[in-house]
Design a protein around this nucleic acid. Structure first.
Length: 988
RNA sequence: GGGCCCAUAGCUUAGGUUGGCUGGAGCACCCGGCUGAUAACCGGGAGGUCGUCGGUUCAAAUCCGACUGGGCCCA
């Protein structure tokens, strides 16, 4: 028999990936498969657009895997994917900051001096700087998206859809201008929305100072209120002090005779050693008292520097007196407005003090802290100065400390439709489920108005114009804009700044020239608009249906306050429905030792490197096999190990099969094998059970149970089906059974390929091509074009039960062998089983018993009543008893004949090993000479022809003495007997 | 200060919603086996106060409460 191919060893995961990628790309497999069948039922999906002016990290890899699993499953299920477009989030600070750095700009003034138009052009050019890296990552992890026709938030069509939606909100009264105290980044010189702030809380050390506020009114005497703050820089803007009406306050006298006022609860904290209490009173007693401000500043006029009452004051922190600077805090603003004291803001847009206070002129807000504290101390106003570690918000993009600041802003009035947000959220299937009522749900019930406008440049301009009479014109599209512009719009029209600001727009109400509100909008609004804006809705016909939510989205946990939230808000406000019906959320990534992964710590695993070394499927499998909804540890070792267990074993089984199939030149089976035998029926039943389990799990969007089911099947296939079937694959005694085993294994592997295709597409494709003998030759023959399989076998739960019990008995038998000290290779006469077989085992009949006997290498199984335990006494038998109930027994020794048989097997094995060492193929003919003595000679002599046949040995010489030493003679020792042999290849 | 989640063998974890037989696996470790998958495969062993304390119960890893530690989010 001639063999023209080398034995196939299992290739590495990376090797499989290279082979498959090469096939996919040379035959356009992904391109053809992207959208699924054009006439299939629609599966609505949207890629969450990443910003591509930075490189992707591991977290992006995880969500890509999870998204792709579902998309592949739906395609195989015959769905049309709407849409498979890739997407890019183009606007915003990340890009602007990159350009600022390039030029060394520190402020908006410098940008404007440089020229906004030029600046924006550079932003545009830098926007997709790393898109190629993102695409490469997607390619290597097998994430199929249409990157040739992506949606981009900077495209005019996209912007026009965003404008349309803003106009819709405006017309419903949900988009308004307001004056609010907002988180503000002095470096970026713009306000941030609450969900942006949420990204940037961090531990920080700040001053914690307590200041004397001397009372100046009549009738109280020389007393000072104690006021606590962690933001000394706000003290120059102080206009009021707040106390709480029903809180109890104490006047204490210090050893120096000074009288100080603070909440009674706070006294022990400030005077742990005790202090003389002079008087107690309620907060109402302080209402209207005047005090000397910490810094003399030319703030707004009458009514300032007095004590007011407010319920927000507590005594758990601080002194029960709160300093109020209306420009710098939401509560401050509220109280200041109520008390009509106006606003005083000594800071400019960059957070730098102006001329109001020469002491700190030109200092940034935080930089002024030490100077102000020292000055207070010099003037005897400082009572106590410490530092505190607390969480403080920083800019999520540039990392600069934020401050709260009163500014004008446009708002989406989210707070007006929280009912709708909550109602729609109730319809969403979140995975993990607790997010619905937990983190996301909580966030919705307390949803604040969304500060939408940004005083920036590279973004979607706010399409709102105002005329000198204060009429507002909100424009919802380019055609509408053209009607209001003298001479119409340029073609093509670029809606970005500066072109849009050059337009001479006439007021909708009075026709007067109007000026655009000089803002861009929050980039999160733009990505939240992705479901409709990517189709240029409503300006072009397309597949977007305003009544239908997306069927599925998946991203990381951070997007609960990001993309998931903004999509949900827009869907609720614009279409009065949820944005999506199923949302899969993965947890954050930790490094090997459980620390949060971050670039700054240097413990981040680079996704491209990882994919390069272990292959895309290893990464996919690792993420699917662990609970990705929890924080998960990731390292190359963890990924590789996780994948080796299931994907590696599967590759080995495939290699084993291919070796047999090629040796026998057997083609893949054309249909489901008839499967008469026990093992074959069993593995087909297991395959069908796994197919159903994967189908069910992916049908409800959760890949985790699918991965578990696959792992169990691969285990069963490798450790029982293949293990027990091995002799069948090369037995000449029963060609029909040999064929059945081959066909069944091939069929099962092909079935597995289709079932795992959504999970590990590279391995699935490799199996499909190799086992199915498709030769990587056409896109139609891809496993990903094969459709989701219907039934792959007949389920037989009773057989699966029986097999489980049988395998448990095999474990008992192996334990007994071990205790008896008889190797599996040496046959034993019988295994005794006490009691009747269980119905499930009995149903398997004699074939079941033979399977067990073969596994344990015993000649027969004997079933006896448990009462006959005494027939198997210890000297001759090892017995397994559970709770004094006998289960099974094995003889302690083989018979002489069986021992000889075992020895012969051992010789055969060693010679096979020798063949292999010589690099021979399974089918190579050899010459063999063996020298052996005594019992071993007799054992071999009796089996001459069988051995010769097994070893493909011709001639086969057996000598009754050791072979003379020679280079090619190898000697072994076997249970104290030596034998020697010479194996050499015979020329063909 | 509030919310959500987590805590099971050296490591990674199943189980927990429906309390109930000796809490399962995998990796690593020790011992053994197998050998036409071989950097593969199989078996056995050792290793667990199921974070701590308390409660409910005939019975708690599982339900309840408090606490401790970790992660995330909010203020």
């Amino acid at each position: 028999m001639a063999v023209d191919e080398p034995e196939s060893a299992a290739p590495s995961g990376a090797g499989v990936q290279r082979r498959v990628l090469d096939y996919w790309e040379s035959h356009g497999v992904p391109t053809r498969g992207l959208d699924g069948p054009p006439d299939g039922p629609v599966f609505r999906f949207s890629e969450g657009p990443p910003g591509a002016n930075g490189v992707p990290h591991m977290g992006h890899l995880v969500s890509r895997v999870i998204k792709d699993v579902q998309l592949r499953y739906r395609r195989m299920r015959g769905h049309r994917i709407v849409s498979s477009k890739g997407g890019w989030d183009c606007h915003g600070l990340p890009v602007e900051i990159a350009i600022e750095r390039r030029h060394g700009f520190q402020s908006r003034k410098e940008i404007e001096a440089y020229g906004v138009e030029r600046f924006c052009e550079e932003c545009r050019a830098a926007t997709l700087e790393y898109a190629a890296v993102w695409q490469e990552m997607s390619r290597r992890v097998g994430y199929w998206l249409d990157y040739d026709h992506p949606y981009r938030t900077m495209d005019p069509t996209y912007i026009e859809s965003v404008w349309w939606s803003l106009k819709a909100l405006y017309d419903r009264g949900l988009l308004e201008k307001g004056h609010y105290v907002l988180p503000y980044c002095p470096r970026c010189e713009t306000s941030l929305s609450s969900h942006e702030v949420a990204q940037g809380y961090r531990e920080a050390t700040d001053p914690s100072v307590t200041i004397r506020f001397p009372i100046t009114g009549p009738g109280i005497g020389r007393r000072s209120l104690l006021v606590w703050t962690t933001t000394p820089w706000t003290l120059p803007a102080n206009l009021l002090v707040a106390a709480r009406a029903d809180l109890e306050y104490s006047v204490v006298r210090t050893a120096e005779g000074e009288e100080l006022v603070l909440a009674s609860d706070a006294v022990p904290r400030y005077f742990p050693d005790g202090v003389a209490e002079v008087e107690r009173m309620r907060g109402t007693a302080f209402e209207g008292l005047s005090y000397e401000p910490p810094f003399a500043t030319p703030g707004p006029g009458p009514g300032r520097y007095r004590v007011v009452l407010d319920g927000f004051v507590t005594s758990t922190e601080g002194t029960g007196f709160v300093h109020i600077a209306p420009s710098f805090g939401p509560d401050d603003d509220r109280i200041g407005t109520r008390e009509k004291v106006g606003v005083f803001d000594p800071l400019d847009d960059r957070g730098v003090f102006g001329d109001h206070l020469t002491l700190v002129r030109g200092k940034s807000f935080k930089g002024a802290d030490p100077i102000l504290i020292r000055d207070l101390e010099d003037r005897g106003r400082l009572f106590r100065s410490e530092t505190i570690r607390h969480t403080y918000p920083f800019c999520w993009r540039c990392d600069h400390a934020l401050l709260y600041r009163a500014i004008d802003s446009w708002f989406v009035r989210t707070s007006r439709f929280t009912d709708g947000l909550v109602r729609n959220n109730a319809e969403v299937a979140w995975i993990p489920e607790y997010l619905r009522d937990g983190r996301f749900g909580n966030f919705l019930t307390e949803a604040k108005d969304w500060a939408l406008s940004r005083s920036r440049y590279w973004g979607t301009p706010l399409p709102i114009w105002e005329c000198p009479d204060g009429h507002v014109t909100c424009v919802g599209g380019f055609a509408e804009l053209a009607e209001r512009v003298e001479g119409g719009l340029a073609s093509p029209f670029d809606p970005h700044r500066v072109p849009v600001d050059r337009l001479k727009v006439r007021c909708r109400s009075c026709g007067a020239p109007a000026r655009r509100e000089p803002y861009t909008i929050d980039v999160w609004y733009e990505s939240g608009a992705a479901p409709f804006a990517q189709f240029h809705y409503p300006f072009e016909p397309g597949p977007f249906d305003p009544q239908r939510p997306l069927d599925y989205v998946a991203e990381g946990l951070d997007q609960t306050r990001g993309w998931f939230y903004t999509m949900h808000v827009l869907a609720t406000a614009l279409f009065e429905r949820p944005a999506f019906t199923a949302c899969l959320v993965n947890g954050m990534l930790l490094d090997e030792s459980g620390r949060k992964m971050s670039k700054s710590k240097g413990n981040a695993v680079e996704p491209l490197d990882l994919l390069d070394r272990v292959g895309g499927d290893a990464a996919r499998w690792a993420f699917l096999a662990i609970d990705f909804t929890e924080p998960m540890r990731v390292s190359e070792a963890i990924v590789a190990k996780s994948a080796a267990r299931t994907i590696g074993t599967l590759r080995n089984v495939v290699a084993f099969h291919l070796g047999n199939a090629r040796a026998d030149r057997l083609p893949p089976p054309s249909g489901r094998p008839s499967a008469a035998g026990l093992l074959d029926r069993w593995i087909l039943s297991r395959l069908e059970g796994t197919r159903a389990a994967v189908d069910e799990a992916l049908g409800r969007f959760d890949p985790r149970p699918a991965a578990t089911a696959v792992r169990e099947l691969v285990d069963d296939l490798s450790t029982w089906y293949v293990r027990r079937s091995r002799p069948r694959f090369w037995s000449d005694d029963d060609p029909a059974d040999r064929r059945a085993a081959h066909d069944t294994l091939a069929y099962v592997l092909l079935g597995i390929a289709r079932v795992i295709a959504p999970l590990v597409p590279f391995t699935a494709e490799w199996i499909h091509q190799e086992v199915g003998d498709h030769g990587y030759t056409s896109a139609d023959a891809s496993v990903h074009a094969s459709g989701w399989p219907g039934s792959l076998g007949l389920r037989d739960p009773a057989l699966e039960d029986g097999m489980r019990e049988l395998r448990a008995l095999a474990e008992v038998g192996r334990e007994l062998r071990q205790r008896a000290g008889v190797k599996s290779r040496i046959p034993l006469a019988e295994m005794v089983l006490f009691g009747d077989a269980s119905p499930a085992v009995a149903a398997m009949g004699p074939d079941g018993d033979r399977l067990l006997a073969d596994e344990l290498n015993v000649k027969r199984l004997v079933r006896v009543p448990a009462s006959e335990r005494s027939h198997y006494p210890d000297p001759g038998w090892v017995v397994r008893e559970d709770d004094s109930v006998p289960r099974a027994a094995l003889p302690r020794r083989p018979t002489e004949a069986l021992l000889e048989e075992g020895l012969a097997r051992e010789v055969a094995r060693r010679l096979q090993q020798r063949r292999k060492e010589l690099g021979l193929r399974l089918t190579d003919q050899v010459r063999v000479a063996i020298g052996a003595e005594g019992a071993l000679y007799r054992a071999l002599d009796a089996r001459r022809s069988a051995l010769a046949k097994e070893l493909l040995a011709e001639p086969f010489e057996l000598l009754e003495h050791a072979l003379p030493d020679g280079e090619d003679v190898v000697a072994w020792e076997l249970d104290g007997v030596t034998f020697s042999a010479r194996v050499s290849r015979r020329a063909t």
